[in-house]
Design a protein around this nucleic acid. Structure first.
Length: 883
RNA sequence: GGGCGGUUAGCUCAGCGGUAGAGCACUCCCUUCACACGGGAGGGGUCAUAGGUUCGAUCCCUAUACCGCCCA
């Protein structure tokens, strides 16, 4: 027997183990079945599960479970990425704490990488375990890691291919350099952060005009050591005469030119701007236009290098700033300092200000790869849901910059490039190949040194949808599951994920990596604030799952997911869905107590009771709605349909209506009701399974046993029109309205809740009489009625009156009734009607409306008016009775 | 500066050319034999503002205000 409440903690692990052990997460491999595949955007191996993952993964699990039940040969490909910087940082931190006080450089590359692997094997699986906790049905037997042998081979193949086609090349350009981590990072790993800074105004003496100065304004005075020019706007009258002259760079003593360049904004600062081509992206361009010298003055740690004057050498960039400002001030060249709020690029891992830094790096020609990636979305080979995100994708793809793919790290895919002593580069998939080629060209004794750097993690992640399926080998899985069907991700990583996979996927497979990109919003707190540790508003999905159950968390997330919008997540909703799960549990418990048994062969069209015919139709409608909503990625609609069906339709009405049937003495009806109720519950469990997999599986097992196997691999229901009986639907809707009207009137008139009243139907027509008779037990019970008299001709005086459609019903209450109160109740109801009736009359008298509105609309409005007028008449009659 | 989204009940949000909805919160009643993680009944909204289109606008268009996000 089921307990009164469902206890998730006693169920979840057991069920999950059972699913996994029985291999239900694996592709069915059914011959002829259509395939459905999702590649999980691999979470960071150092990560732990946050609300964003919970939402992202739950959506994927709904799609996977839905398609699995619909008979697709389904694969959800999971795994993690090696997260170069993040993982290396974790292990370096551990190293620092370990007491040996050795840096990674001191223990050496090999030993360090070994440590990272050790860390990974011990602590790397957190997020994957947490995914299981939430019921995610990924095929763990196929779990992959971006550093696996196979995936590493894919990376080498991709790199070598792109290099040979000229799509990967080496270049000396400015990169975003992280001085703390001492590596380059890509544009999209840059966080633009607004900070309170200053604007320093500096005087540079003009050589040709002794005693005069040009004043430049800068947010980074320390970079002046690397200045190689001053720019003014060509149309700026103030500086016209200075163009072509030179200044004597203070503290350095370098002679640098004043050039005219439109980059200089006359409105900003003084209109004259110092140009440091080796330390600023804009200045780099200006410098190139005017052939200015590139003078790097900082080293990789952000310290002044040998190009700076001796007295600043080795000073940290921030220390150098202080000293330089001080020294300029002493020379009388510091004009003023203003407060200035501006945007400074920060590394999203280290959090330190990034330095534009001139180095040799490997680049990928993203612009060329983008061409096909753009075309594929333009021509609909890949479709975004919601569509609006395609614009963001296009905007970014069309302005894409060369992608810096090398990182000065040890953890990652080491770049398969070998340097000969003369600087010549040999790129090959293996060292042997590289040597073979080098020997051919440079003789047998050639010495090669492998590039120390590794590739951007996203380079390997970009191959994920096909490298996980075996590429570059032409495997059966690749043929079967690629292109994948849908990528589910948050819009915040549209550039990381979608863009890179599209470019590399099209390049290497000539096919799009996924046909649909479903973008969901970010999970924020209930006030719309981004969740962050510093704000302290982070909600832990695992804690919620522990407290309320994984199903409740999943339902709450799905119910909050509206297409194209962020999710403002209120934890109280989880409690609400915990209650919902309990409600379902108890509905099942009710069936269990009444001997429910599932018989899939039962002929529901033979049902005698309208109540049973009605709920079957309602169930069909629910199946339709849920199926359509999932297919359209409208998860909130699907969740709400289920919620409404289970709670309102099934529990509040059907179960209550069925009680008299089950308690009655008609064995045939009893059997029919048990069979129908069981059938409805079975379909409900199936439809709800993708959303709340645990409780549905448990109930399936407890109630229906498992002769046909587990719910996870049962068949998704299909709606059948032949099971919908419109007449039963009309009848039961009427019963619901009648009962509701009686309940309302009773409460409003303060009739004691327990009091049983007589119900007199006034001037009853045939249909009403039949309906009353057929549903009398239900009406007795639900409206607290003790007897029904049909066809009463005269309204009794001391009675409440309710009107349903064109029939009046009187509830004699004897002396307890307060006539004044009843009068005002009737008046209030009439008032509401009058407003609507006036509106409808006006509309129907409007010639424009009659001429232009559709016949259906006009007919509908007429019918509504007739109904309301009839009700109004009945209410007036009742009023006159007690006048 | 450019682009995108939002403004609907106390809160969080659905919706939509012709009847304004949900959950939570609130009020009143109920130890009715599945469930108090429950049942029943209620209160609460000039759908941001101003114009326009339309027979009819919360919904479509334009502008404004405010809020948020992305990019420079």
């Amino acid at each position: 027997m089921l307990d009164k409440t469902y206890r998730p903690s006693e169920v979840e692990n057991r069920i999950y183990d059972s699913w996994e052990r029985k291999g239900y997460f694996r592709p069915s491999g059914k011959p002829g079945a259509p395939t459905f595949c999702i590649a999980l955007p691999p979470p960071n191996v150092t990560g732990s599960l946050h609300m964003g993952h919970a939402l992202d993964h739950t959506i994927q699990d709904v799609l996977i479970r839905f398609h699995r039940m619909r008979g697709f040969n389904t694969l959800w490909q999971p795994g993690t990425d090696h997260a170069g910087i993040a993982t290396q940082m974790v292990v370096e931190r551990e190293l620092a704490k370990s007491g040996t006080n050795l840096s990674r450089r001191e223990i050496g590359r090999e030993a360090f990488v070994e440590r990272v692997w050790n860390w990974k094997s011990q602590s790397g699986g957190t997020i994957v375990r947490q995914m299981r906790r939430l019921g995610q049905s990924a095929d763990w037997s196929r779990e992959r890691f971006t550093m696996d042998d196979g995936l590493s081979a894919a990376v080498r193949r991709a790199f070598v291919t792109l290099y040979r086609e000229g799509l990967i090349y080496r270049d000396k350009r400015l990169v975003n350099w992280d001085c703390q981590l001492q590596t380059a990072v890509s544009d999209i790993e840059v966080q633009q952060t607004e900070v309170d800074g200053k604007l320093w105004y500096l005087n540079y003496p003009i050589i040709e005009l002794p005693g005069t100065y040009v004043t430049v304004a800068t947010t980074r005075p320390e970079t002046m050591l690397g200045d190689s020019g001053v720019a003014v706007h060509p149309d700026d009258e103030r500086y016209r005469d200075l163009i072509g002259l030179h200044v004597d760079l203070p503290l350095v003593g370098r002679r640098i030119p004043i050039v005219a360049d439109a980059y200089s904004d006359p409105e900003k600062g003084t209109g004259a701007v110092k140009i440091t081509p080796a330390h600023d992206f804009n200045d780099f361009e200006v410098g190139r236009r005017h052939k200015l010298e590139l003078i790097p003055i900082l080293d990789g740690m952000g310290r002044v290098n040998e190009n700076g004057p001796d007295n600043y050498r080795d000073l940290d960039r921030f220390e150098a700033r202080k000293r330089i400002v001080q020294d300029l001030d002493e020379l009388g060249l510091l004009v003023k300092i203003e407060r200035h709020r501006h945007v400074v690029p920060h590394g999203d891992r280290s959090g330190t200000p990034l330095e534009p830094y001139l180095t040799d790096q490997w680049y990928c020609d993203a612009a060329k790869l983008a061409v096909e990636a753009i075309a594929a979305v333009e021509d609909g080979r890949t479709v975004f849901v919601p569509r609006a995100w395609e614009n963001t994708y296009f905007e970014w793809m069309r302005n894409i910059q060369p992608w810096c793919i090398s990182r000065q790290l040890w953890w990652g895919h080491q770049i398969p490039a070998w340097f000969a002593p003369d600087g010549q580069i040999f790129v090959a998939e293996s060292e042997e190949e590289a040597f073979a080629e080098a020997r051919r060209q440079l003789g047998p004794d050639v010495k090669l040194k492998r590039d120390e750097d590794v590739l951007d993690t996203w380079f390997s992640s970009g191959l994920w949808p096909f490298s996980t399926l075996g590429w570059p080998e032409q495997t059966a899985e690749l043929a079967q599951f690629y292109p994948t069907n849908v990528l589910v991700t948050g819009f915040d990583i549209i550039f990381f994920w979608v863009a890179r996979m599209m470019m590399l996927g099209l390049k290497f497979t000539r096919q799009v990596p996924f046909r649909t990109v479903y973008m969901h919003g970010l999970v924020r707190d209930e006030r719309g604030q981004k969740m962050s540790k510093t704000r302290g508003n982070v909600v832990d999905p695992l804690e919620l799952a522990d407290e309320f159950g994984a199903d409740a968390l999943r339902l709450a997330l799905l119910a909050s997911t509206v297409q194209g919008r962020d999710v403002n997540f209120a934890p109280s909703r989880v409690e609400g869905y915990r209650n919902f799960v309990t409600k379902l549990w108890n509905a099942a418990r009710f069936l269990e107590l009444n001997g429910a048994k599932l018989n899939e062969q039962v002929d529901l069209t033979a049902n005698q009771s309208a109540i049973n015919r009605w709920i079957v139709g309602e169930t069909m409608e629910m199946v339709d709605k849920v199926t359509a909503s999932i297919s359209d990625y409208r998860f909130n609609d699907a969740t709400l349909s289920l919620y409404h069906f289970v709670w309102d339709t099934f529990c509040d009405w059907y179960v209550e209506l069925a009680k008299p049937l089950l308690a009655g003495d008609n064995d045939e009806i009893k059997a029919e009701t048990r069979a129908t109720a069981s059938w409805v519950l079975a379909l409900t469990l199936r439809c709800m399974h993708p959303f709340a997999p645990y409780v549905t599986e448990e109930l399936w097992d407890r109630l229906f046993g498992a002769p046909g196997g587990m719910l996870i691999q049962s068949e998704w229901p299909s709606a059948s029109a032949s099971l919908v009986d419109p007449e039963a639907s009309r009848e039961l809707n009427w019963v619901v309205r009648l009962v509701s009207a009686i309940r309302s009137a009773r409460t409003e008139m303060n009739v004691p809740a327990g009091a049983r009243l007589r119900l007199l139907a006034i001037g009853t027509d045939e249909k009403t009489r039949l309906w009353l008779e057929a549903n009398q037990d239900a009406i007795f019970r639900l409206a607290r009625i003790e007897s029904i008299e049909a066809n009463v001709q005269i309204l009794p005086e001391r009675a409440l009156v309710v009107v349903v459609d064109d029939a009046s019903f009187a509830l004699p209450v004897g002396d307890v009734v307060d006539l004044d109160r009843e009068r005002s109740r009737l008046a209030k109801e009439k008032e509401k009607l009058v407003i609507e009736i006036t509106k409808l009359k006006g509309r129907l008298a409007n010639e424009g409306f009659l001429a232009k509105a559709s016949a259906d609309t006009i007919e509908e409005q007429r019918r509504r008016l007739d109904d309301m007028q009839a009700t109004f008449e009945r209410l007036s009659e009742a009023e006159r009775r007690i006048a």
